[in-house]
Design a protein around this nucleic acid. Structure first.
Length: 637
DNA sequence: TGAAAGATGAATAGGTTA
DNA sequence: TAACCTATTCATCTTTCA
């Protein structure tokens, strides 16, 4: 078996891209973003479960069992050793001459040691970066030749002794997910008798995944699965790990597995080379632009409608899924979301084409897009039609016909009082600067005219109506006015979502099984109900007790015939949970949800951190669960 | 103690103009 | 084409008040 492992060492020593399809390779590696691995520690399972949820569930999933029996591969030690060199402060003081300092720093930043960089530069006097890079790769391979791996290869016992030192661990903040496995029981039996292994497994191993990971993923997805699919599965399994694993991560590492940082380094290295070869990234390559007008594949009120699109192969097949978030997210966010959700192009739609309030959102889904229909009657699409009592008092110099986005916070009574007093000074024709001030405040806080010189904030029930919910949907049950605004502000615009989901009515005439993630106040459930699509089984995952109560109350008041199951924390939803429901229901027909936008929205002045943000990172749980559902369901079919 | 009010800009896109 | 202007944004934190 030794020669097989030597092969791994060689593979890891050279460009992985050479043995992979470029797009698959970069797609896979690009997913390994820092935020991806910076998920918060998982807490104990304490999901609140109602309905038919059973007690005494065995939370150890088959997936986890597979993972927990995984082992570490010695092949990735190569990169580990390089990475150790990266963070050596002593080494970081370059000995190269001043003229090369930028070059040295550049390669140091890639993760090569100062020693190797200096040597490579000396060997390439012309200073050609491409040549230096090639030399560095070669030197890295030699520097990590099998002879130098004495403490880290050959058998599992010895591998245990290959411990990442403190310096290494401290530098790699993503490393808490490094150990996919806790045991280290890789036996040579897991390589085929003749010493060969499936090429895909070799590729995965060369990327730093353990052989067990690679084999488990291959087993689950079949031998013909793409590298991208396999890495997705491995990731999903990783994310399904419980906190016990994370606590283990705080201990000194006994693994030689290439960690996320190292994988990222590899990606950066390859990406830099690719960039050099192709030149600067162009808009056409990567940037997702918002459409103008923002009508997606079409809205009821517009004549130009796209009725056909081609989905990526990985996106085809059950379940249907529907993901939502704010359109105006920081740059790169939608590219990442799209990349994770099977490279489906987002559909950006402004709900101002459905109702009287703007709501610019992006939707990634694999639903059909032909034969959509809206909920009837169509909701009013102007402020005056939606709020007819305001028409009488609307001054001619306020040209608004649409409200801006319905937010989670609203203007105060004191503000509207100040506006009234400012206007009363001037009679019917306030000067332009006063008009400008008033209009600015009205736009900012969505104020409407309710009397002479009187503006007012929207009432919660008016917000409910504008968003397509039943009046008083969020009222009562102990919820404050402030929390009503907050829950509503975080919700779907029902008519918009229903228009997209309407295609499911013919597909599931007898009802639908729904996995609703980040349910909130039940926008998806209300949309399906308003479409008259029977809700057979709904597993609703929502962290807020107040919101869960709202949905439960709606469920009872609308006399739903199906089953509603509530789970609280999406981070506790694992493969076993999902498999139980899938077996019980015969599968989920729709996975729907919009993950938190807190760290994406422009209104957040404190922590607009993108998908790395504390809340918005939960997008990866949406992907994790969706991918698990797809995998479990495909395994059952 | 909980609810409401007030203070806190930047990122981004689109339009206009020189 | 670049510079400038305008408009928009599923928010967070601290203070005030009843």
């Amino acid at each position: 078996m030794l020669h097989v492992r030597l092969l791994f060492l060689l593979i890891a020593s050279f460009k992985v891209a050479a043995i992979l399809d470029d797009s698959a390779f970069f797609s896979m590696l690009d997913r390994l973003k820092p935020s991806f691995w910076r998920a918060k520690g998982y807490r104990e399972m304490d999901d609140h479960i109602s309905g038919e949820e059973d007690e005494g569930i065995d939370w150890d999933t088959e997936d986890e069992l597979e993972i927990q029996n995984t082992v570490t591969s010695s092949c990735s030690t190569l990169v580990t050793r390089n990475a150790e060199a990266i963070i050596s402060k002593e080494e970081s003081s370059s000995s190269a001459g001043p003229s090369n300092s930028n070059l040295v720093q550049h390669f140091l930043g890639m993760g090569f040691s100062n020693k190797l960089v200096t040597k490579a530069i000396k060997e390439n006097v012309e200073g050609d970066t491409e040549s230096i890079l090639e030399t560095l790769l070669t030197l890295s391979a030699l520097d990590n030749s099998p002879e130098e791996q004495s403490s880290c290869d050959l058998n599992s016992h010895q591998k245990q002794q290959c411990v990442d030192d403190d310096e290494f661990s401290s530098d790699y903040d993503e490393s808490f997910l490094v150990d996919f496995s806790e045991s280290d029981s890789w036996s040579d039996d897991e390589i085929t008798e003749n010493g060969d292994s499936h090429p895909t497994i070799l590729c995965l191993a060369s990327m730093g995944y353990t052989m067990e990971e690679a084999m488990a993923a291959t087993e689950r997805c079949g031998p013909d699965a793409s590298i991208e699919e396999l890495t997705d599965i491995i990731y999903a399994a990783q994310m399904a790990k419980t906190d016990a694993i994370f606590f283990e991560e705080e201990k000194p590492k006994n693994s030689c597995v290439m960690n996320r940082k190292q994988k990222r380094k590899m990606f950066e290295l390859e990406a830099w080379k690719k960039k050099k070869q192709k030149g600067p990234v162009t808009d056409a390559d990567e940037v997702i632009r918002l459409p103008n007008p923002m009508i997606g594949y079409g809205v009821p009120s517009e004549s130009s409608v796209i009725t056909h699109r081609t989905l990526p192969d990985a996106a085809i097949g059950p379940p249907f899924f529907y993901y939502e978030n704010v359109a105006l997210a920081p740059k790169g966010v939608w590219e990442t979301i799209s990349r994770f959700l099977y490279d489906i192009e987002p559909e950006f739609v402004d709900s101002k084409y459905f109702c009287a309030a703007a709501r610019k959102r992006g939707y990634v889904h694999n639903l059909p897009i032909n034969n959509r229909f809206p909920i009837l009657p169509l909701p009013p699409r102007t402020i005056n039609d939606a709020l007819p009592l305001t028409k009488k008092w609307w001054p001619p110099w306020d040209k608004r016909t649409k409200l801006n986005c319905l937010q989670t916070v609203y203007g105060s009574a004191r503000l509207t009082d100040r506006i009234r007093k400012a206007l009363e000074k001037w009679g019917d024709d306030p000067p332009l600067h006063v008009q400008k001030f008033v209009i600015e405040q009205c736009r900012k806080w969505n104020l409407v005219w309710v009397g002479k010189n009187k503006v007012a904030t929207l009432e919660p029930d008016e917000v409910e109506t504008l968003l397509g919910f039943p009046r008083n949907h969020t009222r009562g049950g102990g919820i404050s006015r402030t929390d009503r605004y907050k829950s509503l502000g975080n919700s779907f615009q029902v008519d918009t979502v229903a228009y997209h989901l309407s295609v499911l009515k013919d597909v599931f005439p007898n009802g639908i099984n729904v996995l609703s993630l980040f349910s909130g106040i039940g926008g998806a459930e209300v949309a399906l109900d308003r479409l008259r699509i029977p809700l057979k089984n709904v597993v609703s995952v929502e962290i807020s007790e107040v919101n869960r109560d709202i949905v439960r109350s709606w469920w009872e008041q609308t006399k739903q015939k199906g089953n509603l199951i509530h789970l609280s924390d999406i981070q506790h939803v694992n493969g076993d949970t999902l498999e139980r429901y899938i077996v019980s229901f015969g599968g989920f027909d729709l996975v729907v949800g919009g993950s938190p936008c807190n760290n994406l929205t422009g209104g957040n002045r404190v922590s607009r951190d993108g998908l790395e943000g504390e809340h918005s990172a939960l997008f990866y749980d949406y992907f994790r669960i969706l991918d698990l559902v797809k995998c479990i369901m495909s395994r059952q079919n």
